[in-house]
Amino acid sequence: MNAQECLHILREIKDVSFATVDEKGFPQVRIIDVMLIENNKLYFCSARGKDFYKQLKINNHVALCAMTKNYQMIRYSGKAQRLDNQKYWIDRIFKENP
């Protein structure tokens, strides 16, 4: 299975476990929504005041894990990037996720 197939499966699952690293170097996991998949990229949102956002700013290495209804596990890891033109992306994400 290639990366694009994994991403599409993650979008179908929608709610996934998403790990960041805190300021002390410890893993922190939470459930997030996969908001959009496009061009081999996964898009998600976080509010600026949350620990999740702060952790992404300190260390952008992330990992996520989910399980399909058929008990197939999908794992994905990479580096998160803050997007330019945030209004465009926020509008786009909420259009895709009413």
Rank of each mutant, 00 (worst) to 15 (best):
D22E: 07
G25T: 06
M67K: 01
R92W: 09
A66L: 05
D22R: 03
T68N: 13
I74F: 08
N39C: 03
S77T: 04
N85W: 00
R11A: 09
R92E: 01
R30H: 13
K69V: 11
E23V: 05
N60S: 14
N60W: 09
I37N: 06
K79W: 13
D33I: 03
V16M: 07
K69L: 12
R82S: 07
G78K: 05
N59G: 06
G49M: 08
A3T: 12
I13R: 01
R48K: 14
Y76T: 00
K24S: 12
Q72P: 12
D33W: 08
N70W: 08
E23Y: 06
R82L: 15
R75I: 04
E38Q: 15
A63W: 09
V29Q: 10
K14I: 04
L56P: 06
R92P: 04
K95V: 02
M1N: 07
E5M: 08
A47V: 04
L10H: 01
E38H: 14
D51A: 07
P27Y: 05
L83P: 10
D15P: 04
N60G: 09
W89Q: 00
Y88R: 00
E96L: 04
F44V: 03
L36H: 15
D15K: 05
M1A: 10
F44S: 08
I90L: 01
N39A: 06
K14V: 01
L36K: 15
R75M: 08
N97C: 00
Q86S: 01
Q55V: 05
D33F: 08
Q81R: 00
M67R: 02
E23G: 09
N59L: 08
L64I: 03
A3V: 07
G78V: 03
D33H: 10
V21C: 07
K79C: 11
R82I: 11
G25I: 06
G49Y: 12
S46M: 06
Y43T: 01
I37D: 06
I32W: 08
G49H: 15
N2P: 13
R92K: 14
N59R: 11
V62I: 15
K95R: 03
A19P: 15
K87L: 07
F18C: 07
N70M: 06
E38M: 14
G78M: 06
I74S: 01
L56V: 10
Y88S: 01
Q86N: 02
L56G: 04
C45L: 13
N97E: 02
K87M: 01
I13S: 11
A3K: 14
K57Q: 10
K69S: 13
Q72H: 06
N85P: 02
K57N: 05
K14S: 05
L10Q: 03
N2L: 11
Q4E: 11
N70L: 06
K79Q: 13
K69D: 14
K50C: 13
N70R: 09
D84A: 02
R30K: 14
L56A: 08
M1Y: 03
K95W: 01
A80W: 02
M67E: 15
E96P: 09
V21Y: 09
I31Y: 13
K54I: 03
R82G: 09
S46C: 13
D33M: 09
C65H: 07
S46F: 04
F44T: 11
C6P: 02
W89G: 03
C65P: 10
N60H: 13
G49Q: 12
D91F: 01
